[in-house]
C-alpha cells in the first residue's frame, strides 16, 4: 500500500508544515511497510521537489501547472484524490494549516474516507482501522478518533511532529490531473502579508504581549526580543481590538491557535479564551506584575515583575546567551 502526502508549496518553496506532514507519512510508511508518496501542485523547481526524499518520500507526483499556484480547495481536492487513486493510497496525509483545514474534509468526501482533523500524534493502525489523538475543547482535553472506512485522511496539526532529515532524493513524476478550467475560478486579488517575519503558525518561538504593555509605543520590547530570538510576535485580543496590533496576530479562542516550542506571554492575564489558543505550546513563560494572574497556573516558568523592567533585562540576557552559544 501507499501513503500519499499532499505537500504545499508557496512561491516555489515547500511549506514547513507540509514537510512535517511528509515526515509523519514516511514514519507511518516505515512501520507499516508502505511506500511514502507525495503530490505537489503548482510550480516548484525539480531540486525543491526531489528534496522531499530527505524526509523519506520515495516518489513525488508533480503537477507543475501554473494554474495550481493559487490555492483553490475545489480543484486541489480533485487533483489530490486523483493522485491518491494513482498511488493506490489507503491513507492521505496533509497539514492542518490554513489551507489544509478546508481541503482535508473535501478530499475525505471525494475518497469516501473517514477523516481526522488535526491529529497531534502518530496513528495506531489496527484491524483496518486507524486511530489518532487530537485536541478537543480548545485544548482542554484530547480525544482519540477512529476511522472505520477503508480509505483514510489525516490532517496533522502543525508543529506537532519533528522533521528529521536524512539523505535521499525522491523520484519526480510529472502529473497532469484531469481537471477542467471551470474547476479553477478562484482569483487572488491581493495579499497582505507581513514580510520578513516568521508566520505565527509556523514559529517555534512566539513572543506575545497583552494590555499590560499599556500602548503600541511599548511594543519594541516584544519586537526586539522576537527579533533576537527569531520568533514571531502575537498579542491578546483586546490589544488587536483597539488596533495596537494587527488582527492576524491575535491568538486565542477567536483568533489563531499556536503550538510553538516556547510561548512568552508579557502583560497578558491568561483568560481562558486566550489560553485556548496557546495551551498546546510546549513551554510557556509568563511575565506579569500580578502574582495572582491566572496565566501563572498554565505556565512552566514565570517572573512576577514589571514588564518595563524585566523585558529590557531579558533582551540583554538573551543577547549575552546568543553571543556565548
Amino acid at each position: 500500500m501507499a501513503i500519499l502526502t499532499f505537500v504545499e508549496v508557496s512561491e516555489g518553496k515547500i511549506k514547513k508544515a507540509s514537510l512535517e506532514a511528509a515526515a509523519y507519512s514516511s514514519k507511518i510508511a516505515e512501520t507499516s511497510g508502505a511506500e511514502s508518496v507525495a503530490v505537489v501542485l503548482g510550480e516548484a523547481s525539480a531540486d525543491e521537489v526531489s528534496s522531499l526524499g530527505k524526509v523519506g518520500v520515495k516518489v513525488v507526483y508533480h503537477a507543475a501547472d501554473a494554474r495550481f499556484n493559487t490555492f483553490n480547495s475545489k480543484v486541489y481536492s480533485k487533483a489530490i484524490a486523483e493522485a491518491a487513486d494513482k498511488a493506490s493510497a489507503e491513507l492521505v496525509v496533509l497539514s492542518f494549516n490554513q489551507n489544509g483545514k478546508f481541503l482535508g474534509p473535501r478530499i475525505a468526501v471525494r475518497l469516501s474516507a473517514g477523516y481526522i482533523p488535526g491529529a497531534s500524534e502518530l496513528p495506531v493502525l489496527e484491524g483496518g482501522k486507524l486511530s489518532a489523538k487530537k485536541n478537543v475543547f480548545s485544548g482542554k482535553a484530547s480525544a482519540t478518533y477512529q476511522i472505520v472506512t477503508a480509505k483514510k485522511v489525516v490532517a496533522l496539526t502543525p508543529n506537532s511532529f519533528p522533521i528529521v532529515k536524512g539523505e535521499g532524493t525522491a523520484t519526480v513524476e510529472a502529473f497532469s490531473p484531469s481537471v477542467s478550467d471551470a474547476d479553477f475560478g478562484v482569483k487572488v486579488k491581493s495579499v497582505d502579508k507581513v514580510t520578513g517575519t516568521i508566520p505565527l503558525t509556523e514559529a517555534e518561538v512566539v513572543v506575545s504581549g497583552g494590555r499590560g504593555l499599556k500602548g503600541p509605543e511599548n511594543w519594541w520590547m516584544i519586537e526586539d526580543l522576537a527579533k533576537e530570538m527569531g520568533a514571531a510576535t502575537a498579542c491578546s485580543r483586546p490589544v488587536a481590538d483597539v488596533d495596537w496590533r494587527p488582527h492576524h496576530e491575535h491568538v486565542g479562542q477567536t483568533g489563531i491557535t499556536v503550538r510553538p516550542n516556547l510561548y512568552i506571554a508579557v502583560g497578558i492575564s491568561g483568560a481562558i479564551q486566550h489560553l485556548a489558543g496557546v495551551n498546546q505550546s510546549k513551554v510557556i513563560v509568563v511575565i506579569n506584575n500580578d502574582p495572582e494572574a491566572p496565566f501563572f497556573k498554565a505556565a512552566d516558568y514565570g517572573i512576577v515583575g514589571d514588564a518595563f523592567e524585566v523585558m529590557p533585562k531579558l533582551i540583554e540576557e538573551y543577547k549575552k546567551f546568543k553571543a556565548a552559544h
Partner: peptide
C-alpha cells in the same frame, strides 16, 4: 486568513 497575513480572493 493565510499564514502570516490575509489574502483577498474573488470567486
Amino acid at each position: 486568513e493565510i499564514e502570516g497575513g490575509t489574502e483577498t480572493v474573488e470567486t
